[in-house]
Amino acid sequence: MNIFRLVGDLCHLASILLLLLKLRASKNASGISLKTQELFLAVFVCRYLDLFTTFYSVYNSVMKVLYIALTALIIHMMRAQSPIRGTYDASQDTFLHVKYAVAPCAALAALTMLVQGFDVRDLFWNFSIYLEAIAIVPQLIVLQRYREVENLTGHYIFFLGAYRALYILNWIYRSFHERGYKHHYVVYFAGIVQTALYVDFFYYYAISKYRGGKFSLPS
């Protein structure tokens, strides 16, 4: 464990809690993409299959369970809880049909198995790495469509992006400080793609903080 990974994980947890807070406080799901949340749940469930096979640490297991459980709770609130359910606007959340996200990632994961040798857990794990890279896209598109971004929604995406950026620093740190650390280029590639998706958001977020005004995206 290093400081970048720890702070990254905590940013990730903070982002999920901020989204839950937004849903609870405003009783409103406008500006939130259900598709992104469902893709994230698929990412966590596929990646954390090792919860059943390998124990790393209490920290590791608790965080994995929290990510899965809290994301499932967000989805439940958006799908089933009144009045939040009525405020979710599916017509704005249309960018990516889930199957067009899942199918290419599954194909890529299968291809990766040809290179690495087949292992069921690795297949799901690689799939989750590819899927996570694009899971935020529907959310970013919803933001673009609404333009005016609520404070908590803005913070949610900021912390999520910070988590990804800190993981890049974590890999650099690990490669220098861990004897025999194996480079995992699939993870680096997906992680860099994913972080790059946030760059535009970070730019406008920073400008709005600097000016102290409302956060809105350009048309």
Binding site: R5, T54, S57, D122, W125, N126, K182, H184
Partner: peptide, 10 residues
């Protein structure tokens, strides 16, 4: 696991 994937990461 065959790939040495960093499963300890989240």
């Amino acid at each position: 696991s065959s790939s040495d994937a960093p499963h300890d990461e989240l």
